[in-house]
Design a protein around this nucleic acid. Structure first.
Length: 261
DNA sequence: AATTTATTCAACCGCTGAAAT
DNA sequence: AATTTCAGCGGTTGAATAAAT
């Protein structure tokens, strides 16, 4: 049975003057026109002003979840999945709060995604949720390891700087002794890595390693380019994730008349 | 090829808190 | 201060679709 056939059999019925069920392209167009003219809000006026037989709640939901032009369509990316899991672990079922951290995603979408992908599967040890959690765990371990490496590097650098100071003071003494002689002594070359991409940055007299110290909240997004590759190593058989944009998993006939996406 | 089962997701419902009257 | 209206949230439902048998 087609969607349109269903509408006559319960969906799309008129109850107390309000239409219910799937939205038609024409209704979408009316709602879009309404928002274009009047802006978002005052949803209870929509029926009167836009000629829609939908209640305010239904109009708001349709706009927020499907018609807003800033919506991101297509599958949830592994990056978004990680964020969802992290934030759900932090905030629980506060979907709207979680959605605020995922631009273009709606609370409804996130809620549906979480329920279908993680809720039931939390019992099984070999599921996506578990895999994602493992990815997060690996990531944390990797960050800790990197932090330790950085600290060790810093310590070495400090030691080197102390040694260098000693050498320099010795050389200065020597120089003073020779009273500006031809300078036939050896002066060690400073590190000459270029600051771009070398991991070192020139600061004052020396070169200091530029190691991004993991800041839990701030750098999650920037570093994902690297992490995405790493964390997906165990996501076998999930295909490519090139569909962050407008690639619906299946055709949505209700939205055919919608000028977005 | 037909049937059953599982998954996905759009849309609804009830509830709550804030704002308006 | 009390009541009403509105907007937003989270939970749930049920139809469409995909996958398995």
């Amino acid at each position: 049975m087609s969607l349109w056939g269903v509408m006559g059999a319960g969906w799309g019925i008129v109850e107390e003057g309000w239409r219910k069920g799937p939205w038609t392209a024409e209704e979408d167009r009316l709602l879009i026109d309404y928002v274009r003219l009047h802006g978002e809000g005052r949803w209870n006026s929509v029926a009167r002003l836009a000629g829609l037989k939908r209640n305010g709640k239904s109009c708001r939901l349709r706009w927020v979840n499907y018609l807003r032009p800033d919506l991101k369509r297509g599958q949830i990316t592994p990056h978004e999945e990680t964020i969802i899991l992290e934030l759900h672990a932090k905030w629980g079922n506060r979907w709207s709060t979680i959605a605020r951290s995922l631009p273009g995603r709606t609370d409804n979408e996130i809620k549906n995604y979480w329920r279908t992908h993680f809720k039931k599967k939390t019992k099984s040890p070999t599921n996506n949720a578990e895999k994602t959690k493992n990815r997060i765990l690996k990531r944390q371990q990797f960050q800790q390891q990197r932090q330790m490496e950085y600290q060790q590097e810093q310590q070495l650098l400090q030691l080197n700087q102390i040694d260098m100071k000693k050498i320099m003071s010795l050389l200065e003494d020597e120089n003073n002794h020779n009273n500006g002689d031809s300078g036939a002594f050896y002066v060690p070359h400073p590190i000459t890595h270029s600051s771009t991409g070398s991991g070192y940055e020139s600061k004052g007299n020396g070169l200091f390693p530029v190691v991004p110290v993991p800041l839990p909240e701030a750098n999650v997004h920037e570093e994902y380019g690297i992490w995405e590759g790493l964390w997906n190593l165990d996501l076998e058989g999930q295909g490519s994730f090139n569909d962050g944009a407008c690639v619906p998993r299946k055709p949505c006939f209700q939205n055919l008349g919608v000028p977005f996406c």
